[in-house]
Simulated scan of single mutants.
Amino acid sequence: MDKATNRVSIRVAVADPEYSGTVETRIFIDDRPIVVEAFTAGPAEPPEYLLGLDHRLHAGVEPHEVRLAEADCTEGCCGALYVTIQRCGDEVVWRGWRNPDTSDLSLPAFTFDAASRR
Rank of each mutant, 00 (worst) to 15 (best):
V93L: 14
W94L: 13
I27Y: 01
L51R: 02
E48L: 09
W94A: 12
L50D: 08
R95E: 11
A80I: 06
T40D: 08
T111L: 06
S20R: 02
Y19L: 12
S103L: 06
V61P: 10
F28A: 07
V12I: 15
P100N: 11
S20Q: 02
A44S: 15
A15C: 15
M1W: 04
G52L: 12
E70V: 11
D54H: 09
I34E: 05
Y19G: 01
G42R: 03
L50Y: 05
E70S: 13
Y19V: 13
S106C: 04
T5D: 08
I85E: 07
L105N: 11
I85R: 03
N99H: 02
I27H: 02
D101H: 14
G42H: 03
G21A: 04
D2Q: 13
P33M: 03
A38L: 13
C73E: 12
V93E: 11
I29G: 02
G60C: 10
D113W: 07
E70N: 01
L107Q: 04
V83P: 06
R118W: 07
R118G: 07
R32V: 15
R11D: 11
A109K: 09
K3V: 10
D2L: 14
I10H: 05
G42L: 06
D2P: 15
S106I: 01
L50T: 05
H55Q: 15
E91R: 15
P47F: 00
R118I: 12
D104W: 05
A109F: 00
D101I: 00
R95P: 01
D104S: 08
V35H: 01
F39A: 00
C73G: 00
E75Q: 15
C88M: 12
I10E: 07
G60V: 05
E37C: 06
A115C: 03
D90L: 12
